[in-house]
Amino acid sequence: MKAFIVFGALLLSTHLSAAQLDLQLGATARTWQTEELLKHPQVQTLTIKDDVSYKRDMTYRVVPMAALLTGIKPQDHLQAVALDGFAAELAAAPLLNRVGARAWLAIEDPAQPWPPLAEGKHSAGPFYLVWSDPQKGKISPEQWPFEVASIKRMAPVAERFPALLPDPGLKTDDPVNQGFALFQKNCLACHRLNGAGDAQFGPDLNIPYNPTEYFGADFLKRYIRDPQSLRQWPQAKMPGFSATVLPDGELEMLVGYLKHMAGRKVKP
């Protein structure tokens, strides 16, 4: 039994030390190994207050995301894909910030592995996108992808998935279009809509039914704020969206987009 435990520990150490992060940034591509990132010239130790995934303060070895995103411009669009298929759609501009809310790549050191996220689960490693001072940029929980395997430069969501688009006759600043932008930021990492999107987690939010068709508006808003307050089960994965991250006015626009799309069903 002791030999088996030692062998298992060696396998875990090998897995962590062999972890790699693939960056596909358009004109440039790079694969980083754990050991390389831990020796990066800008690596440092950082304590994240009230970490979104661990629900407590956590200390990590980190590299600024801005130092890794070679050639990326603020107007670019990125997608971070996790080992389990979670696909976070990320505007590049916040990731490049050097003041205010700042993005960091946390690197799990095989010699000092992170704790599991919950009993029976893996840690957030080997790579985890974390934020310092997230309240200064209204950073959503969906902008904290963990178990990250790759980060890719992508075409904007509207170009890749036209089935997500609101009525093209609406003005650019229409609240429904603003709600669409919020949907991309807060929902698309886990949900598809009209079969469109890369997410493999949550249900489609329009096919066969849109949540505005079976939730009263107030209950839908309550569910988005705190899912466990309406439906409780141990394996629930949907995070709550506080008023700090998603103010009431933005929540209203997000629900408005969903209600609008209930009239624009496109079967996959």
Rank of each mutant, 00 (worst) to 15 (best):
A93C: 05
P113E: 03
A118S: 10
P156R: 05
I48D: 02
S17D: 02
V43T: 10
R56F: 02
R30N: 10
G85D: 04
L38K: 13
R264G: 00
G195A: 03
K185V: 07
L205P: 10
L25T: 06
W131P: 03
G256S: 06
W144L: 07
A66I: 02
G263L: 01
N177P: 01
A103N: 09
D51I: 08
Q232K: 13
T28S: 13
A217D: 15
S242E: 04
E108V: 03
R192S: 06
N186K: 13
L21M: 13
L258A: 04
D57A: 14
A66V: 11
S140Y: 05
G125H: 06
W144N: 12
G195M: 06
M238F: 02
E252I: 11
Q79P: 00
A9F: 13
D198G: 04
A9Q: 12
K73H: 10
A111F: 03
Y214W: 14
L129S: 10
I139N: 09
L105R: 09
P113M: 06
Q228E: 10
A103Q: 05
V99M: 08
H15C: 14
G179Q: 05
V130N: 10
G263M: 00
S13Q: 08
V52W: 08
D174A: 13
K259H: 11
L251R: 13
D57W: 00
D22E: 12
R61L: 11
H191Y: 04
L96N: 01
D57E: 07
D204F: 01
F201A: 10
T59R: 03
L182E: 11
H77E: 08
D76A: 04
R231I: 14
P115A: 14
L105W: 15
H191R: 09
K237V: 06
P268C: 01
S17V: 15
A93T: 08
L90C: 09
G71R: 07
L12W: 14
D198L: 14
M58W: 00
P110V: 07
P110R: 03
